[in-house]
Amino acid sequence: MIELDINGVRRRLDVEPDTPLLWALRDTLQLTGTKYGCGQALCGACTVHVDGTPVRACSVPVSSVVGRRIATIEAADRGRIGRAVQDAWRRLDVVQCGYCQSGQIMSAIALLARIRKPTDADIDGAMAGNLCRCATYQRIRAAIHEAARALG
């Protein structure tokens, strides 16, 4: 048994310690908002926050995040920044297929928590690990700026 703090709730999981956090979230806890895209930390679809920092859940074994605060897309609307980001995403209709967007949003929230008024270069850097096959990048950039504006 492994105990994890996920979205503010302690969850006991019967998984092997080498299980990537991604599959524990998706298959064991049915938190399916976090997506699988590559399994190799190459695409960012699985991005979650561990103690506020964006990490690729596909490449983090559950044993390494015991005692840390894990936050997923399902809890993105609990904070002011998360709500501003989701709002901007919806106002600009950023999504296409939507599959990468949980990860994009989690990376964007972490960026805005760190830098309140990110420049285009900040965005290029913070979002470089989040691939979008539908190439919604132009709107992602605009939505991050829009969320930053809304946050004042």
Binding site: D27, L31, G33, E74, Q86, R90, V95, G98, Y99, S102
Partner: peptide, 27 residues
Amino acid sequence: APRRDSAAKTDGTAMFTLDVRLPGMLV
């Protein structure tokens, strides 16, 4: 006319095939 799928695709609730789970299902 704003997209009808924007909300579900920004809060993790949009259901893709990979998210389907049935009772007794094997992967």
